[in-house]
Nucleic acid binder design. Structure first.
Length: 495
RNA sequence: GGUCACGUGGCCGAGAGGCUAGGCUCAGCUCUGCAAAAGCUGCUACAGCGGUUCGAAUCCGCUCGUGACCUCCA
């Protein structure tokens, strides 16, 4: 098992060595979407980030239990008591049952995840499926004196909690600041303190989504579901918790408080936060109305886009930026990513058809050392807080070598069995299994090979009109022929 | 207003005291019937001003600019 993986822990604001609680098992929880509308590209970035995290952990040999929840309880649109439930609101708007909304957008979400080649989580629990667990957890918090009941609602008692535990350590928040900045909210008369947050809310008569509880009919607060579900499936203390940076406060801060309030222990050992996707320098978010839907990108139907971009192009673009940096979306960046992605795939195809030489010459030590070092750089990048940008850079260096081998500029016979295997498996496994970058439309090899042999025949006959015609056909399929001294093959057209 | 980030070449983006990514674009070359593909070569940057240091894009300070969080958001 690899022991050099370092993770940037938001809690300590440092990169630290990853040491799982119960190796080889790793538990990871990622805050999933609220399914009241389509996921937008920003959401996708976060989920792709953690997809690579999970993939890499598995590549290293860990047995990962990956949880990503579906928030299907509406939660409030604003913080005042008469706020509307997001899902219920949407349901009214579309004249549907709330669960129809949930179903529709859950299906849509899964489809997008699949298009982006994000693996499904091991468990995808829903908030509505865990109401009783949430109630139990709230009872535990109440029993330990860190919450109070008011008018059929239950609130977390931040001042009481503060007597025994720090609050705000994850987000670097100072409680006094919180108080001064949250002073002027009206309609929170049930709360004893402005920093308190809801664990359970009384449902008013208009509220559709409601469940019985010891405190009356109501619905759970926004933060409690993650605490309840992570505890149930990963235990009171688990390894990694991830989510978007905007969840750091208050959501994740509240999760910590709830867990300690309920059972004393800080719940998470490594907190990871993915940075925002921006558009024209501004955060992409539903509330700002500047979000692009994956569908719009894949179809090219957004005004910002002059052409469609494929899911893999998007994934590649995500991975070219480190997850903790903001990424600014632009048509130019996507265009560059599209070409880069094809180049990487061309390398993949070469790697796959590489055949081990019958015999090796005297090994070219310099070449071998260079190759091994580049393979090492791929893993070192991933080890360094999942730096996919660095890994990709090294992969491109390998792709270059792969081309040279194929074109006969370098000879595989100059390697040895070990370095040959290392080159091949590193390129293929990291690209496909860890980065999740796969060939988008595997061509029907039969058709392509017919074209290819036609092309070869036309070339040897010097029938250049036919040659040009065949090239045009290939191009229309997004392919190009390449003539090498060692033979003719096809490749993805990068233009 | 408070808290915290960030500012890298034509563009996108890593890196984080001396080695200096990578992708895209552009120019030239090799190869080629012409191309394509591939390879090679060139373009050498770190907002500004001070400071620490033998040495700073990287550390410290200030200035300017941008963003995030403080309210639902991945």
């Amino acid at each position: 098992m690899n022991s050099s993986l370092k993770i940037y822990n938001t809690l300590s604001r440092k990169k630290v060595l990853f040491e799982p609680l119960h190796a080889p098992h790793v538990g990871i929880y990622v805050c999933g979407p609220t399914v009241y509308s389509d996921v937008h590209l920003g959401n996708c970035r976060t989920f792709t980030t953690f997809d690579v995290v999970v993939r890499y952990l598995r590549y290293l040999g860990y047995q990962v239990r990956y949880l990503r929840n579906i928030t299907d309880v509406g939660h409030l649109v604003d913080d005042v008591d008469e706020g509307e439930d997001k899902i219920a609101k949407r349901a009214k708007l579309e004249n549907l049952e709330p669960m129809e909304i949930v179903q529709r957008y859950t299906v849509g979400f899964h489809k997008v995840m699949q298009q982006l080649n994000n693996l499904p989580p091991s468990i995808e629990p829903t908030a509505t499926g865990h109401i009783s667990e949430q109630i139990t957890l709230i009872e535990q918090i109440l029993a330990r004196g860190y919450a109070y009941v008011a008018n059929g609602s239950v609130y977390f008692d931040v001042p009481a909690y503060l007597k025994n535990y720090p609050y705000g350590e994850l987000s670097g928040r100072v409680v006094e600041d919180l108080l001064s900045s949250t002073r002027d909210l009206d309609g929170q008369n049930d709360k004893k303190h402005p920093a308190d947050f809801a664990l359970w809310k009384l449902a008013n008569s208009a509220h559709i989504m409601r469940w019985p509880s010891p405190w009356g009919e109501g619905f759970p607060g926004w933060h409690i579901e993650c605490s309840a579900m992570s505890t149930k499936y990963l235990g009171q203390v688990f390894d990694i918790h991830g989510g978007g940076m905007d969840l750091q406060f208050p959501h994740h801060e509240c999760e910590i408080a709830q867990a300690r309030g309920a059972h004393e222990h800080a719940p998470v050992r490594y907190w990871m936060h993915a940075n925002m996707l921006t558009m024209n320098g501004q955060k992409m978010s539903k509330s700002l109305g500047n979000s692009i839907l994956p569908k719009e990108l894949f179809l090219g139907s957004h005004p910002l886009l002059s052409q469609p971009f494929s899911p893999m192009t998007l994934r590649f673009a995500f991975l070219q930026t480190h997850y903790r940096s903001t990424m600014d979306l632009s048509a130019d960046a996507l265009k560059a990513a599209q070409i880069g992605y094809k180049k990487l795939m061309n390398g993949l195809r070469i790697a796959k058809r590489l055949t081990e030489p019958q015999s090796y010459h005297a090994p070219n030590d310099k070449l071998i050392a260079e190759l091994l070092k580049t393979c090492e750089r791929v893993l070192a990048g991933l080890d360094d807080d999942f730096n996919t940008a660095v890994a990709l850079a090294a992969l491109f260096d390998l792709a270059k070598k792969l081309s040279q081998f194929e074109a006969g500029q370098l000879s595989l016979a100059d390697l040895d069995a070990a370095s040959y295997a290392r080159l091949k498996t590193t390129y293929i496994d990291i690209t496909e299994k860890v980065l999740g970058l796969v060939e988008e439309q595997p061509k029907t090899e039969g058709l392509v090979s017919v074209l290819l042999s036609d092309y070869a025949a036309a070339k040897s006959e010097k029938n250049f009109e036919r040659v040009d015609a065949l090239r045009a056909i290939a191009k229309s399929m997004g392919l190009a022929f390449k003539d090498m001294k060692t033979g003719i093959t096809w490749t993805y057209d990068e233009a």
